[in-house]
Every structure is written in structure tokens, then in C-alpha cells.
Simulated scan of single mutants.
Amino acid sequence: MPSALTLIFMVLFCLVSLASMLQNGFMIIVLAREWMRNGALPAADMIVVSLAFSRFCLHGIAILANLLASFDFCYQANIVGILWDFNNTLIFWLTACLAIFYCVKISSFSHPVLFWLKWRISRSVPRLLLGSLIMGGLSAILSATGNVIATQMIISQGFYENCTFGHMILDFYRYYYLSHAMLMWFTPFFLFLVSLIFLMFSLYRHVGKMRDHRPGPCDPRIQAHSMALKSLTFFFIFYILFFLSLIISSTKNKATESYWYWAREVMIYLGISLNSITLVLSNPKLRKALKMRL
């Protein structure tokens, strides 16, 4: 029977996840209506709605996986965990795509490659979304492969009769999963970080050029830089906390009866929820729709 503190954190985790599902559901509905009304969506909104849908699914999968693991439905929890890997990797790559899109569209570097990307990036968004789906699918395949290998090792060697070999299996799965996480999560995290740094240098460079002209606070390029940087900076804070939490949790055993496990889950998904709020407030259509609802 879980302790009272564990039950409190379990309830908090469910409440945070449900609240975040409502936030992302709101984004999906608003942008889907916009899509149906106009017959198309701007490239950035296509990434945002894909990100919102992926996060909506991630929270639902996380609730289901944690509840199954709590009631010792390990096999079902592993299957749902593979779906969680798919969604989680998809979110990382979609976030990187959004950062790259902002960087290419707003940055003021005068390089031929950047000019070519500015011209192509909007039309390339569907391909970026497809590439993110492919990376998510590859992550799910690697996760399933690790599960199958670990299960076969347990069956063939007798896990319960040999504790030493049991620890070897756990170590194998832990390091396999960590390697998979570093490959699938660190790469989009690195792309996100590079895009953020480029935007910061672009803003610094543009402000330096315009200093002698004394631009007003309504200078459109500075406003675009500032809005994108504010959005991506908040993204970065929650993103790096989420990234580090996942890396730490992938190297530790998951004891779902421990209140520390549920406290960590609350912090991880609270960060995603706050990130979703930042996404709503940084998007003009979503911000306007939110004001109308309130």
C-alpha cells in the first residue's frame, strides 16, 4: 500500500498532467479552427499544433504508464513505455524544428546559405515534421529492441537464480537506454541550443548596427528578435530541466512506490505544463483566443 505522501504526489501528478492536457487541447482546437477556416496554417503554427498534439498524447501516455506500473502490470507498462519513447523523442525534435524555424526567419546574418534557408524553410516544414515522426519511430524501435534483448537474457539465463547476472542485465538495459536517450534526445537539444545562441548573436549584432541610428522601441526587427528570444529562453529553462530529469531518471531504477519517484514526475510534467503556457502566450492567435475566453 503506498504511503500518504506517495498518494499525494500521485494525485498532484495526475492533476498537473490533466491541466497540461487541457492547455494543449486548447491550442489544438484554436489552431485546428484556424486551419479549417483558412484552409491552411502558417509554417510556425503547423509546428506548434504538432507540438501541442504530441504533448497532449505524452501526458495521457505518462498517466497510463505510471498507473499500470503502480499496479504491477509490467508488460503492459513496457508497451506503453515504448509509445512514451516515441512521443518524447517526437517532442524533442519538434521543439528543435521550432527553434530552427525562428532562427532562420528572424536572424539577420547575411550569408548565402541563410538566405537560401529563409526562402526554403516555410515550404520545408512538412518535411521537418515528417523527419520528426521518423526519428520518433526509430526511437520506439530502439526502445522495443532493448526490451526484447533484456527479456531474452532473463529467460535464457534464469534471472531469479543468479543475482549477479540479474545486475548485469539491469546494467545492460540502463546503459543501452542511456545511449539511446543521448542519441535521440541530445541531438535535437544541441540543435535547439545552437539556434538559441545564433538568435542571441543576431540580436546583439543588429542592436550594434542600429545604435547610431537610435532606433525606437517599435523597431520591428528588434521586436521580432526580443519576442522570439523571450519565448525560446523560457523554452530553454524548462527544456533543459526536462532533459536533465529524463537523463537522471533513465540511469536509476524506477520504484513507483517511492514518493521521490512521483515527486520527480510532478516536477518533470509541471515543467512541460509551464512550457505550454509560454507557447500560448508567445503565439498571437493563441493569446488572442485566450483573452476572448477569459
Rank of each mutant, 00 (worst) to 15 (best):
M1S: 14
S3M: 05
L7A: 11
I8D: 00
I8K: 03
M10A: 03
M10T: 04
V11N: 07
F13R: 02
C14Y: 00
S20W: 00
M21H: 10
L22Q: 05
Q23R: 11
N24R: 08
I28C: 10
I28D: 00
L31C: 06
R33G: 05
R33M: 09
W35Q: 08
M36F: 14
V48S: 10
V48H: 06
S50A: 12
A52C: 10
C57P: 02
H59P: 02
I61E: 01
I63M: 15
N66A: 12
F71E: 07
Y75E: 04
A77S: 14
N78M: 13
N78W: 07
V80N: 04
G81Q: 01
W84T: 03
D85I: 01
I91E: 03
F92T: 06
T95K: 00
F101R: 02
Y102Q: 03
C103M: 15
K105P: 06
I106L: 05
S108C: 14
S108W: 02
F109I: 13
S110H: 13
S110A: 15
H111D: 07
P112A: 10
V113T: 15
L114C: 03
W116C: 08
W116E: 02
K118V: 05
W119A: 14
R120Y: 07
R123W: 13
R127P: 01
L129S: 01
L130Y: 02
L130N: 00
L133R: 06
G146S: 12
T151C: 05
T151N: 11
I154W: 00
S156G: 04
G158I: 05
Y160I: 07
E161M: 11
C163S: 12
T164K: 08
I169A: 03
L170F: 10
Y177N: 13
L178T: 14
S179L: 12
T187Q: 00
F190P: 00
L193S: 10
V194F: 08
V194A: 09
F198D: 05
S202N: 04
S202T: 14
L203G: 07
R205V: 05
G208C: 10
H213S: 10
R214H: 06
P215F: 12
P215T: 10
P215I: 11
G216Q: 02
D219P: 07
I222C: 14
H225T: 10
L229G: 06
S231N: 09
S231C: 12
L232M: 09
F234R: 08
F234G: 11
F236E: 08
I240L: 15
F242H: 03
F243S: 08
L244I: 12
I248K: 07
K252T: 15
N253H: 13
N253W: 13
A255Q: 06
S258P: 04
Y261T: 09
Y261N: 08
A263Y: 04
A263I: 06
L270E: 08
G271I: 00
I272P: 02
I277N: 01
K285C: 11
L286I: 07
K288L: 14
K291Q: 12
